[in-house]
Amino acid sequence: MAGHEPALELRPAAPEPPRLQRAEPLEGDAVRARQVQGEPEVGVAAFLDGIQESRVLAHWPGGVPVVHGTVAATIRRRRDRTLVAWRPEATRIERALFVPRAALGDIAWEALAAGCALRDTLESEDRGPWHPLDLTARALSAVQRRREAVEVQCAELWCAEGDGPLFVDGGIAGAGTAAHSPLAVGVVKSHRTLYVDGDTLPLVLGLGEGERTTLFTVTSPRRAPVASWYLRLRAPAAHDALWGLVRVEVALDGATTARADLVSRWLLAERAPVALPDPRWGAMAYGVRLTEEYLRAVTR
């Protein structure tokens, strides 16, 4: 099904500009650095991750890209130091053609729909003409939204029926009901948006290994507010200042200093084994890497 062209995710894309965004302190009156109290301890019961892959299969007349996308998410539960499938419905895999219906035309849409699942990459109010690259970018966004959607389905399932903390690769603010669950712990590895202002930036970048910031609130118009903090998993040494740094998200309700320390201890415990050879190993838990590998194995 996949074409010979590289995955869209691997193509150079116009980068989202990095930015600083001030966050409201939740633990004290200002964001500060502090040592995580206590030794690392094992607390995470399961890992949630999702993957996506999309390729342009063909170009319809008029330069309309026909993109095949695969999205998947799963929860891998830890049992006897080994990750195993939690339950069948906690592994979700979707494959579809992502095409702009308005650009394609109804006849072509119906013809394609007879053979496979289709997803429209345009909003109902979108009107052409469209730049072909814009259509490709919209397809990629649509795939990404589906990936986030299946991740949310899995997270909500765990938070409803699972037992124990769930390590979610990425934030939980957009994870529906999971954003309010005490079971979900979101771990964000990318930092294009840093939730600091100019005064606290040096403090975050200067966190030492095993140190965290105090809690602050992350809010977004279309997402649930969550409690968050930065945690330095590994000393950056010769790497850049963001290396080994994660931002943790938990439900706002119950977000106390003690809980932040407890969750931080869980995350510090997940530093071993290292997620090498993944280049993101400085901030990536091995459980996340295994979950990702599992998804790649079952989707190929």
Binding site: V42, R81, A272, Y286, L290
Partner: peptide, 11 residues
């Protein structure tokens, strides 16, 4: 000894 304390065994 640190390797033995890892919460997840390598696949």
């Amino acid at each position: 000894a640190g390797a033995m304390r890892a919460p997840t065994d390598r696949t």
